[in-house]
Design a protein around this nucleic acid. Structure first.
Lengths: 328, 328
DNA sequence: TCGTCGCGTGGAAACGTTTCCATGACGGAA
DNA sequence: TTCCGTCATGGAAACGTTTCCACGCGACGA
């Protein structure tokens, strides 16, 4: 394995000169520049990242901790974040927490040990010990999509109020009165914001405020299906259902089909916070609020990089758009 | 930032003893063990990964290069691989190639610089310079899902023959004769294997061998939709369509709906290689061959770890299962 | 002609670990 | 008592970089 020492020797220059050429850091004579580059190419030299990180006290790596990469929202976000980071010369270390606080802490310990330069975090719950320790070290951290109680960090996520507003308007436009709402986890900031905005906006948009139409889920398919079944079991007859996120909507679909059969289910309009491409092919028709995960991912990277430069990072709430598929 | 030197000083022991305790490597007296651990806890000591990697010449990190993490097959695979690796004390560095050979090479260079201990790779095309360079250094490498011409590496992927066989049997059982086939990229091993098995098996399963029903796509939604349109434009009337992967099937759905309208489209049975959960909610009904991405991810990690231990790694072809949704 | 300046250069030091080697203490056998 | 082996220990060396510092050399102005 060739080291920079080998490169320097082969080029007939000193260690320092080789390093300077390879990093383009300082002035070097054209002749040594040329010879060093030639030597490096001949030897297939690849700088030893860890050694370089050790000496420079930075790694050019950002950590990205999401709850579950299988969630399309996060995989799109991760993809965009990686592209954006790469464009700025940073690598992204991706890890899953599986909605598990212990695993999240474990990952943070690994990140800390790797000495990542910055962190993008979709929190699982309250602040954990490892997070606190990273904060102490002044590692730049931004939050994705969920907030953490008591911790004031730049936030990059969806504009829930605006998105729910679009849904309320759509439901009113379509003349729905009896609308079921399957919400998210009541302890998560996203769940709270969406529920508050929706429930509070019902009256102004001609939607029944009967709480028999409302159940909380857990942002997972299973829990949402169960919640939907509880609503149906009360004997109410919604003409539309609003699911608080993508997985919730899938659970709603499953429950409707299971309890009513696919024909009766097709008569119900389903509205989703979070859009999936395949909604276009589903029956019943699904109207959705599209959540620009790519924009969030890019903005989050830019936020971390700003913090790294010592500038303040402004929180960003990305606006959503309504994909209306009710007209079919 | 506390170093191991600080820990040793605070514990009143030498550098070596501190290191030995923290790594549990050699015999240490209970008293110094206790004091070192206490000191480390008090200082919030976290070992410096890069320094440790420098000295040990290994990083306990595996690289995973996929074409696009937004593809559910890969996100499931990546998730499983990360869990498996973590269970064995390894971290996974994930990167996307975006189906772009140059970007893939770029990522490999980064991986090489990070000195990953092993690599799991879903190749974009033929062997690239950086891959060759990694091979030279004897970095353990396994292939995911696609093979590389002329390079003999352990392979972990779907059993395409077996999967296509399930599809052929299903089509025969359902009595389809006029079946359209939208294939994948003809240069990729997966595309070739699936096409060869399907085309060769048609006659034996009572399926028309008229090549007017066959078009190649590119494993992407856009290209598949275009291919499907070309078939329909020939004036043939398939009663079923077989899409060579998940994205292809989505393109097929789009084309059918666009050209025939959703009612006529619903009368056509669509069969997919790759299953998505939402297929259950789609119209027309979609029967699919389920591809166990998690099993592939886990097996690939185990393969790399075997290579790292100096053992041979046996290629694995994971069997698929048929999810029959045609009975609705 | 001489001092000064700037530029390119070589090499030592440092980054934080792990591991090797030598040392001292201690206990048991002779 | 003496000798040897065992065991825990401290510290130096090494891993591959980058960066700082000092030096030599040519050009330039006085």
């Amino acid at each position: 394995m060739a080291t920079i020492k080998d490169v320097a020797a082969r080029a007939g220059v000193g260690l320092g000169t080789a390093s300077r050429v390879l990093n383009g850091s300082a002035q070097t004579s054209p002749s040594s520049r040329e010879r060093v580059l030639a030597a490096a190419a001949e030897l297939g030299y690849v700088a030893h990242g860890p050694a370089r990180a050790l000496r420079r006290t930075r790694t050019d790596a950002l950590g990205l901790l999401v709850s579950d990469i299988r969630n399309p929202f996060f995989s799109e976000l991760a993809h965009a974040a990686e592209q954006e980071a790469r464009a700025h010369g940073y690598a992204v270390l991706l890890a899953n927490a599986n909605e598990d606080e212990r695993q999240a802490d474990d990952v943070l310990r690994t990140f800390a040990s790797q000495r990542i330069d910055g962190l993008m975090l979709s929190p699982q719950g309250p602040a954990t010990p490892q997070l606190a320790s990273l904060l102490e070290r002044d590692v730049p951290i931004v939050l994705l999509n969920r907030r953490i109680e008591g911790v004031d960090l730049p936030f990059f996520g969806t504009d829930n109020e605006q998105g729910v507003g679009l849904v309320l308007e759509h439901l009113q436009r379509r003349g729905h009165r009896d609308v079921a709402y399957v919400g998210g986890t009541p302890t998560m900031s996203t769940g709270v914001e969406r529920a508050r905005t929706y429930l509070g906006g019902r009256a102004a948009h001609g939607i029944s405020t009967d709480d028999a139409f409302v159940e909380a889920g857990d942002f997972q398919t299973e829990g949402a299906a169960a919640a939907m079944l509880r609503i149906l079991d009360r004997g109410v007859q919604p003409t539309a259902v609003f699911g608080a996120n993508g997985a919730t909507t899938v659970g709603v679909l499953r429950a409707l089909r299971e309890r009513l059969g696919s024909d009766a289910a097709a008569a119900i309009e389903v509205v989703s916070f979070d859009d999936f491409d395949w909604f276009a092919y589903a029956s019943p028709a699904i109207t959705a609020v599209r959540n620009d995960a790519s924009a969030i991912g890019r903005a989050a990277v830019q936020g971390v990089l700003a913090l790294l430069r010592g500038e303040p990072a402004e929180s960003v709430r990305v606006a959503t758009t309504l994909i209306d598929r009710s007209g079919r």
